[in-house]
Design a protein around this nucleic acid. Sequence first.
DNA 1: TCGCAGGGGGATG
DNA 2: CATCCCCCTGCG
Length: 290
Amino acid sequence: MRPGRIVSLQVKDLDLSASLLSGQAFRWNLDAGWYCGFIGDAPVRLRMRGDELEAEWFGEGGDKDAIEAVRAYLDLDRDYAAIREQAAQRLPVLRRAMEFSGGLRVLKQEPWETLVSFIISACNNVPRISRIVRGLCGDGRTFPSPADLVKAGEGSLRGLGLGFRAPYVVSTARMLESGELDLESLRNLPTREARMRLMSAPGVGGKVADCVLLYGLQKYDAVPVDVWIKRIMEGLLFEGRRMSAEGLRAWAVGNFGPYPGIIQACLFHYARSTRLRDLQTTCAPNTLSI
DNA sequence: TCGCAGGGGGATG
DNA sequence: CATCCCCCTGCG
């Protein structure tokens, strides 16, 4: 690939690894110190140099376009530190998680890619979701359109490892192709109604819908509740009592402040990282003693 | 070998 | 409404 244009931005409160590699998006990878991926259809790579974010941009347009795209995608104009601090003051039990999540950004992704990615995320893990999404894109750089996926068909998607999710993706793609579901029009709808529209698609329940609303449509009152959020919220806020996902979602929207989705992202990051640390500290001695 | 997993759908008390 | 089982695939 011929070299792109390199731009740089002064930023603070940005952790590229936490933001790009921990389960919001599935087309970024770390290669020789650069985070390589796509913003929309534009290939881009990113790296931090101190307080400077360096971006090599392979898309259309000039420096200003590149800078604007990067700023928007990483949501750099929003004061996340203030949002975290406000949540920590409101709910002191969350302070540790908020402080742990410094630099985490909620990405502004393309809604169709987000929808497909999170249908695929059902009962799945980040490396495998990433592998499948890469497979969907094939040799091309751009994410396949609904028509592309309908044309590919259930069989070839199964061949890529989608398994039981393959018919969901194809049927949902058909709904977009026919206009029965229009993602852009959801931007103008209240979160509640946009959520119901999304859930009319096969393979899209409440959790996947909330991921699309938050990561793809920038609805910050969407709070995806998966098993990690469930565990951490039950533990931190409900003395370990079992709560329904719907109950937790409603509670979060009512109590997390003006950006519940961002607080959710911080809790998710904290919960997963904590669990990973537990595994490292508890498993290592066992392996030694065997 | 087998159970199980970051979810959804459909059936059942 | 809560709970159960199944759905592909890959991993321990």
